[in-house]
Design a protein around this nucleic acid. Sequence first.
DNA 1: ACAAATAATGACGTTCCGTCATACAATAAC
DNA 2: GTTATTGTATGACGGAACGTCATTATTTGT
Lengths: 253, 253
Amino acid sequence: MEALTRKQRELIEREDLILQAAHDLLLERGYHGLTMERIAKAIEYSKGTIYQHFRCKEEVISALASRYLEKQLAMTERAASYEGRTRERIAAIGEGLEIFIRLHPDEVRILQIIKSETVSEKASEECQAAMKAVEFQAMATVAAIVHAAVLDGDLELAPDTPPEAVSFGLWAIVSGGHANILRDLPFQEVRIGDPYAVTMNTCDILLDGYGWRPLSTEWDYARTRERARWTLFAKEARRLCGEECPVRAAEAR
Amino acid sequence: MEALTRKQRELIEREDLILQAAHDLLLERGYHGLTMERIAKAIEYSKGTIYQHFRCKEEVISALASRYLEKQLAMTERAASYEGRTRERIAAIGEGLEIFIRLHPDEVRILQIIKSETVSEKASEECQAAMKAVEFQAMATVAAIVHAAVLDGDLELAPDTPPEAVSFGLWAIVSGGHANILRDLPFQEVRIGDPYAVTMNTCDILLDGYGWRPLSTEWDYARTRERARWTLFAKEARRLCGEECPVRAAEAR
DNA sequence: ACAAATAATGACGTTCCGTCATACAATAAC
DNA sequence: GTTATTGTATGACGGAACGTCATTATTTGT
């Protein structure tokens, strides 16, 4: 038992090493610059050893992506527990996702890489299914809030509109927006100073369009986000803006 | 002159051959199954000859993508010329894009492949710049309509919202939506029967959120789309639903 | 008909993948 | 403490693809 546990610990530890090295290589040299040989060199093991953990290079990337997806899901679920109106919970999720991408743009970039067919076509079914499952759970979390809003009367949906249509729309905005942001197009040229803020704002407008009460004209969702930021994501937020919490700073005065 | 022209024609013709072969291979065997050798075999030339047209495999894919982007842009611009209210023009563009993806899902899939960093990291700067330029033109076309709407009073934007923020949002919905559609997630399970329709509807709701008049509750945009479909995209639409034009079919009765 | 220029070819060097026989280490048995 | 057994790590190897380039073939011009 003891021996087994130590062995297992060693395995897990090495897996961490591999993934860390893969992450660095992926960002520094891109998908084609990531080679098994280079990972091996970086962690001071041989190529063969890596193949005892992963079936192919694409599954290494998949494993990386799964981690980041789970991290993202954890933030989403944490945000979903925000205490307040249903629409505030959605705003909190938006805040969580924005913090995530601002804090870990690299990880989101890697998520994009794996989602491309180019990479996923070589990963095994299990790997892909595992990733899709995590994503679906995030979708389901949002859909559940939409459902709750319908039940408590804050939102009325047309009879042919399932709650999932709303979460699908939000999802499209966020994933499409972030995908475009990471391709660093010249946003300045078109007077979009902060594309993250535009993405969030688009979500707000969409929900206004659905008539989800209270509308953004009747409620200060910026404030909701700020609160979510410092109650649910304090640690991350502090890292993001350099140990500086504006609310507490203001209170201190 | 004559000789030169013939040479050039041969070159262009062969380029078409190459791209056609690449398209087929890409769809049948995926990115990793697309090899220069296989293209060569398919068009009955040697590998070296292909390298006189393209610097590397990724540039072959880029060239393919550029074509499809231009095709898409052409449809967008055609749609933008729809005669009617500004918001109808946006609806027409939506209709055009939907027809495009329904008619050529393969081409959209290829567009997604090239957009992934995995592929673009190996394509030359010029190639990438060319593609971004086409995309930007599409964005600009939409932004111009937004601008027109502001000028003629159908749309009032908050002072901190540039017209491009609206087109950015629409763009995010459509590209994010289509990206998710092509990954064929189990939409049936969440009662989303027609994800294309949901994507379009999300755009409508967003514009309602912006208060772009006439709202979708005051105007039948489904009708606008239908009209755009049979006035601007008759040929494509006929191909799409098998020579069957519902309007004319109804009139014939 | 022959020389010059242009284009096509596929063998070659290189890189990377993924496998597997072999070498090495750890545990168990005697 | 030595030997057997089991398990783990290694890098040499075959194979596939890339991209190049010397050679061969074809076209063009005189």
